[in-house]
Design a protein around this nucleic acid. Structure first.
Lengths: 356, 356
DNA sequence: TTAAACAATAAAAACGTTTTTATCTTTCTT
DNA sequence: AAGAAAGATAAAAACGTTTTTATTGTTTAA
């Protein structure tokens, strides 16, 4: 546990003046010594550092902030799940925040979270942060194909890292999953398993990664010389209900899918629920491939094939990139597009009966 | 969208001095006028407010912070999920943060998140926040039966609200779920359904609410004149794996449970996975009652009976209470113990075959 | 009618830093 | 041996507020 738990009625924490009185040096010298300025002599620095240690001196963050104009805060925009009938949506934010928090752990930066209710809201919050310099850097996700936040931030030179890429040719720090590749690979796997009618349970098409997935989905059909089953693309929010409703609707079509690719585990659970209601079995009547996010698909009954996305790792990268960006590093060096790992838990060929 | 998207190269944001020059009043008067001090004359106040509006003046948070000693931050302690093979451990921090964020929305407070890796770590962070007054208030969960954080915070008079109650008789602001009642009700329902061997998939016994659940569990047996199946209490983390492993182990015992009460949806999914592996069916071979947290049990196959916990609402209450506590309200008035709502999706009597 | 009370505002001080500028020694140059 | 350069530290200014104290002018009280 902590060094000494009892709150030893410590009279006001020491300031730089306390340290000055204690050491005999001026506050200017002390500040320079502790900030590592080369102008102060080595013995002096040692004495000051020792005294600071002894008194338990910690520079007052408010004083530093006022003088330097920095806030020592990294802001994150987080969607608020204000829906009344709330359902599992954005569970992975816990992991993202956790990853960012780890990255910031050894820095002077604190993590501040800003909830937003709509895309416009998110934009306004971002702008306010920049205008008032209420933070030194920003992280956000839910990137749109043409995202005004990115335009605004790039123009203002404010340090930021996005989770996801927009489709505008700009240079900015970002972390992303290779969604095009993943959707391609999932679809191609199903096509190889004999499927021709494949559904894609997708996110809102305004989101950049939703388009990426459609691209990959279509490319898999093209490369196989088939027509993509574009009529089987459902887009909506990422709720379990959406997954269930979409599956029920698609499987009721005259020419229904024999396989489904799901955007995340929440919708997957909904799809599995729909299949249960319709008494169709995974791996027998229909195949399902999903994207892992909270890494739980192994426990579905039956376990299903997924792309594992190391979300917490992506969170750590977001934090690391932001620190480096705030330190002045060129955003062109701060990009990562990670390929998720395919974890095959089913043959995804309807037990072979569907094989061409 | 925002008023004007283009970043109109706004030359440095206006300070109180700008406003002074613009209105002809002194900065002292301006500060008082904007803070609502009664000493400034009404026409003066109006003129100043109008000017502030016109120039888009926003008080600089750093200046205020330094002068007042306040930080305008509400801190939240969040567990870091640093495990390599991360699994959903069920603590729905996204919703908690979302709720808190909503509560703080119309206040001057910002939400800052502090990740911790261990209980001791959490304590140290809390203490540092207090010592350095790096925040004006604190929210945390994972309360232990005897929680040193609560002792320390109460003693120091630092405003805080905990999600969960400790077992020490102290007065402090808190929000909690009535876990004793919920465990009692779930267990009694199963006993009424004819079950006598009931398992409790529980959290770590150092946690206060884990003890509460054991109390309720035991009371249900006592009131039915039965001996509690205390040998069927499993405690561990809240991961899906823990749920699965526990169920596999318990069902392999010589005198196995016929029903299980699960601490959250993550462990429930693990339990259902185990039942699938063992080819036992919910509602036929074994009954399961769970606690909802991300509100997804309706989509399990089959849907199972749960206690619905309005986590996001609890989050809002946490934020609301903290604001009131920071405003000086007596913590004795800031307590809420919410009874979760039972949502019966199964008869929980093994289809009647087990009824006494 | 003059001192005292009051109302309204201005001036100054303070919060704790960092950074710029000034001062004082010492050490080179020539 | 005198002036210049360099090294080390101190002093002062500044960041943008809020709060305390001071200064006006105006009204009240006796």
């Amino acid at each position: 546990m902590a060094e000494s738990r009892k709150s030893e009625r410590r009279e006001l924490s020491p300031t730089i003046k306390t340290l000055a009185a204690h050491t005999g040096y001026s506050i200017a010298t002390i500040s320079k010594a502790l900030r590592g300025s080369p102008v102060v002599a080595q013995p002096t620095r040692d004495a000051i550092v020792a005294a600071a240690q002894e008194l338990g001196y910690q520079a007052n963050a408010r004083g530093m902030a006022l003088r330097t104009g920095k806030t020592y805060r990294a802001a994150v925009l987080m969607p608020i799940t204000s829906a009344v009938g709330y359902e599992w949506d954005g569970v992975e934010y816990t992991q993202i925040l956790s990853g960012i928090s780890q990255a910031l752990e050894d820095s002077d930066y604190q993590l501040s979270v800003h909830g937003f209710r709509s895309f416009d809201d998110a934009f306004d919050i971002a702008r306010r942060l920049v205008d008032q310099s209420a933070a030194d850097g920003l992280i956000f996700s839910g990137v749109r194909a043409d995202d005004p936040r990115i335009d605004m931030l790039v123009e203002s030179g404010f340090p930021f890292v996005s989770l996801g890429r927009c489709r505008t040719p700009l240079t900015y720090a970002h972390v992303d999953v290779d969604n095009e590749w993943a959707a391609f690979t999932a679809t191609a796997r199903l096509i190889a398993g004999g499927h021709q009618r494949i559904a894609l349970i997708n996110a809102d098409r305004r989101l950049s990664y939703a388009l990426d997935r459609i691209d990959g989905f279509s490319r898999a059909f093209n490369e196989a010389g088939l027509a993509a089953s574009s009529d089987l693309i459902a887009d909506g929010d990422l709720s379990t209900r959406f997954g269930r409703d979409s599956a029920l609707r698609l499987l009721g079509l005259p020419n229904p899918p024999t396989a489904l690719v799901c955007i995340n585990e929440s919708t997957t659970l909904g799809v599995l629920s729909a299949l249960g209601s319709l008494e169709r079995r995974v791996g027998v009547d229909v195949d399902v491939i999903a994207y892992d996010d909270i890494n739980v698909s192994a426990y579905f009954t039956p376990p299903i094939t997924t792309f594992y996305q190391p979300i917490e790792l992506l969170g750590r990268k977001l934090g690391e990139f932001l620190l480096r960006r705030m330190a002045g590093e060129d955003p062109a060096n701060l990009t990562l597009v990670s390929r998720p790992e395919l974890i095959g838990r089913q043959p995804d060929n309807l037990g072979g009966q569907n094989r061409r």
